[in-house]
Write a protein that binds this DNA or RNA. Structure first.
Lengths: 201, 201
DNA sequence: CGGATTGGTTAACGGCGGTTCACACCCGGG
DNA sequence: CCCGGGTGTGAACCGCCGTTAACCAATCCG
């Protein structure tokens, strides 16, 4: 069940091979969970969103919680993987690494506002085991940022860098809250510039 | 047991009388809602947190939803009121006004992490009428920021300023996520500096 | 004093929602 | 042709939880 080719599940991709019912469900659920919160969304709602009745979900997932768990695990994995990759590809210059990380996070947030929302709203609805694993992945992703920030702020201790990283996430992940209005490239530039300034202040 | 001023949030009392049972409930509920989400918290849990059984809540609130509504309305009112006041007291210099707003928001977020969390996680659990009113207040608060930001960025349109304001909120409100570690004055300075930089970038 | 008010308690009700069950298709391969 | 696995359906089950009911202790006040 560890889906082998997991890199391509971006919440808004409907091409390639027609997404399996399973993937359709995950995507629709992410959307609904983001809008109303996972606990406020019924299994029937998720089913209806993909043109199926509620119990049909159980042909693809063991439970509603398992759905959420898989969703959150994938997000964390994609962030960690993508972030590490971007840093590795950016050479040795910490400033370049920061630019790469910022660009990556901005793209992710703009591409997947629903996932961003669910990730930090519904972590608490997971079993302790699942939550722990998600937190482990998240922490590793944060550490990627901390490594870069530490080189940019030689005087700062790790706790400060960590707080700084969280603040930058908060800034970039504000996207779902400032809904609409601004076209994507403008939004991307604005967020990147602000994040850059905040990171190097 | 009502020895009052132990570790209490500087939070929810519009009228700062001795904490009435009603206020105790609101405060305990805010804490629990922040930790687990309002839908995951039972009336019995809230009651237990103040040393009372579940149904006793209904002597003080019409319903669980009414509790949440009052909580969110108060937050929004306090932010709008406090923000407007700080700007008015800061004279005519937009840079000074921004500093005042940033300091205010940082103080609020550090003093009331629970309220910050609940405010944007559980807005969706309100009746449409209540949610609308909260959003109205929030919008007015945002507009206070937008007014200041617009003067600092003469070339920028309102939509950009609005997105900028939301991004700054995200940055400052990241506090609940970077739990602990950093002592309060250090955190306050870090957040203020980053917000300042992001706002003027 | 004594009745009304206030703030509790325990027990029960009722609906919602996740999950299971028994059954019905569709379809590909022996 | 039929058998079996994957997928979907409607009905039923069941536990949780918000809410109400009925009753009780204390306190306030005329």
């Amino acid at each position: 069940m560890t889906s082998a080719r997991a890199g391509q599940d971006a919440a808004l991709h409907a091409d390639a091979e027609r997404p399996s019912r399973r993937e359709q469900i995950l995507q629709a659920a992410a959307q609904l969970f983001a809008e109303r919160g996972s606990r406020a969304v019924g299994v029937d709602d998720v089913g209806a969103a993909v043109g199926v009745t509620g119990p049909a979900i159980y042909r693809h997932f063991a439970s509603k919680d398992a759905m959420l768990a898989e969703m959150l695990l994938r997000i964390s994995e994609r962030l960690l993987e993508g972030g590490s990759e971007r840093v590795a590809d950016a050479g040795d210059d910490p400033a370049a690494q920061l630019r790469a990380l910022v660009a990556f996070q901005v793209d992710f947030a703009l591409d997947n506002p629903a996932l961003i929302t669910v990730q930090d709203r519904d972590l608490g609805s997971l079993t302790e085991a699942d939550a722990a694993q998600v937190r482990r992945l998240q922490r590793r992703y944060v550490e990627v940022w901390v490594g870069v920030l530490a080189r940019l702020h030689p005087g700062a201790d790790a706790a400060t860098c960590r707080a700084r990283a969280h603040a930058i996430f908060g800034l970039i992940n504000s996207t779902p809250h400032s809904a609409g209005r601004l076209n994507r490239p403008a939004m991307a530039r604005l967020l990147a510039d602000m994040a850059q300034a905040a990171a190097t202040a």
